[in-house]
Design a protein around this nucleic acid. Structure first.
Lengths: 339, 339
DNA sequence: ATTGGCACTCAAGTAGCAAGAGTGCTAACA
DNA sequence: TGTTAGCACTCTTGCTACTTGAGTGCCAAT
């Protein structure tokens, strides 16, 4: 077991290191914190911490730097999540008012989070797996094309043009629209596939091809719905903090440009404490992310989590305020969506 | 007038500098290019070029580097635009097949352009100022809300939910839809506002409020259409080429995150030669862009330019292949949109 | 107009040195 | 047993001086 004072020393090291970006030594430590013991004693404690792989010396005769494991212990046990200041709360309120649709709300959210933390911020679009269909509309868009609009109860609207390959027949489209809505209104997206089996057979053979085409498209649409999407803001912050990263930032930059990678990353993160999930450095299984930390929280609508948001920054980040910001923004977003 | 051989020297300097990223001196110049004269002669030519502010010596005793003006002369008069290789043509073809809707096509285009040039690529969404309305659809989305869908002849589809504040009346919605389409089908977006004056009065007083609301929303929608949008890809390339930039890249990064700035930049650029427009270094009026060059080309639909695409990179870029790539991609996109 | 030669400049690399910060260890102490 | 002071040792960092090499500008000769 690690004695209490050693843990205090770890906390001090993390705090000082985040503030100064310099390896921190025993002497400056006793100067800045009132430990009531001498530097030599601190050195003994530090030797212990190093034993436990919580801190690490870049070279023989330099100060110490927290390891990923050290940061982890810090956030799990030593860190009190900072309260947001009044100014920041105000900023959040101001930022969010007047958002009309989902796109704009999420767009504002991601920019807010980025400017609040000075990190790269990301917001995931709501997962529609749990959503259900509210309405399906088919609209003739040209002689041979029909526009299919899919509205879900989460408020998302998606549309796609279906090329029929032959002139369309208004009354047939109307019939199909009627049947689809009758069949699918209120049906969860996950159940759409099974619901529409057999629908083709209810049309006259001459039309079955077209029905088939439209249904295939609908399924694709539903599936694409489940395909998630992430928006980013503040990529420039990554470059500004380049020297905060141990290695090169370009793998990180490449990774965050790949939606798929980000989605994988986010989906692996399950809420831990305070509703916030954290990956520190090498805890990220992803290759390029070994010098980065990710802070993520879910946000909700109608009582259940619909997607996540968070920030990406150097392992040497101010966990306290970043966690606070992510949590606060997630809550405000949840609240906003509730209206 | 600058003699021919001096211009050849300038061309050689630009080419060598782009290739080696090192200031190029007289000696290495005569070694690599068969000028048939000695280094001393080249030095005289270089003195002349420096006189004209076409090249510049970073310090007294280093090689020379092209100035913005030098690059400009190079691209305008000395540079033959490279033909794309077979492999690159193939890549373009492969990339573009199977794009279904506009979003996906443009998404693929921007990634293609980025991977082709290894620069930051941008694609502007079609300007709808010149587009006209093909169809307007009103769909009940809940008891008090109606979904308005706007389809233009450029293939763009936009939708928005209008909150009516009172229970909606299907037959009234149908009436309004009919009138709107009769009135507006084929009408250019710019003419929508004047066309719908007087429409409110044709409804019974009890409904005028709702009509007003929907029309206001339609206008907003049309206006939002004119509000342009740009998508980016390859931001990571900027960081990889960081050392290619004279100063810091973070102003550039910040600028490209601001849609507004990019749109301003793009809108200022008018096609020059080969249908491609170019801004080199300080030619960009924008502050942070003095170390960056921008290559832009318009792309068309139905014979007229609807938007632009291009790349952003260091002034020290391979203009030849970047211009070729931008031009080729713009053409392919035009062709794809034609189908 | 071109060339070879030459003195000069400057950046970049290298080596040596001193200062400073920090460590680990040991012996003494409460 | 935990704490402390002292001390020798290590390693980084900054400084200076020196060398090297690439490149220039100019001049006199061709």
């Amino acid at each position: 077991m690690i004695p209490d004072r050693s843990l205090e020393v770890l906390r001090a090291i993390v705090q000082d290191y985040i503030a100064s970006k310099e390896p921190v030594g025993s002497k400056s430590l006793v100067e800045r914190h009132a430990f009531g013991v001498s530097a030599a004693t601190i050195r003994n404690d530090m030797a212990l911490l190093e034993e436990e792989d919580l801190i690490h010396a870049p070279h023989t005769s330099a100060g110490r730097v927290p390891t990923d494991k050290g940061y982890r212990l810090f956030v799990d046990r030593l860190n009190e999540v900072k309260q947001l200041g009044q100014a920041e709360r105000q900023a959040i309120e101001n930022f969010m008012v007047g958002s009309a649709d989902l796109d704009e709300t999420l767009g504002r959210t991601v920019r807010l989070l980025s400017s609040l933390t000075n990190q790269v911020a990301m917001v995931q679009y709501p997962t529609l797996g749990k959503a259900s269909i509210r309405h399906i509309e088919l609209i003739p868009a040209s002689d041979t094309r029909v526009l299919m609009v899919l509205i879900t109860d989460s408020g998302r609207i998606q549309q796609h043009v279906v090329e029929l390959g032959q002139n369309l027949d208004e009354s047939f489209i109307a019939e199909l629209r009627g049947k689809l809505n009758e069949l699918l209104a209120g049906v969860p997206l996950s159940a759409v596939a099974e619901k529409i089996t057999g629908l083709v057979a209810s049309f006259v053979p001459a039309k079955q091809d077209q029905v088939q085409l439209i249904l295939a498209n609908l399924l694709e649409q539903v599936d694409a719905n489940r395909q998630e999407k992430i928006i980013l803001a503040g990529t420039a912050n990554l470059v500004k903090r380049e020297e905060d990263f141990a290695g090169s930032i370009s793998p990180v930059l490449e990774a965050i440009e790949e939606q798929v990678i980000l989605l994988k990353l986010i989906s692996e993160m399950q809420a831990e404490q305070h509703g916030v999930s954290l990956r520190i450095g090498k805890e990220n299984s992803l290759e390029g992310f070994s010098t980065a930390s990710v802070v993520v929280s879910g946000y909700e609508n109608q009582g259940s989590e619909i997607a996540k948001l968070g920030v990406i920054g150097p392992t040497r980040m101010d966990y306290s305020s970043n966690i606070a910001a992510v949590r606060a923004v997630a809550r405000y977003l949840t609240k906003t969506l509730g209206n």
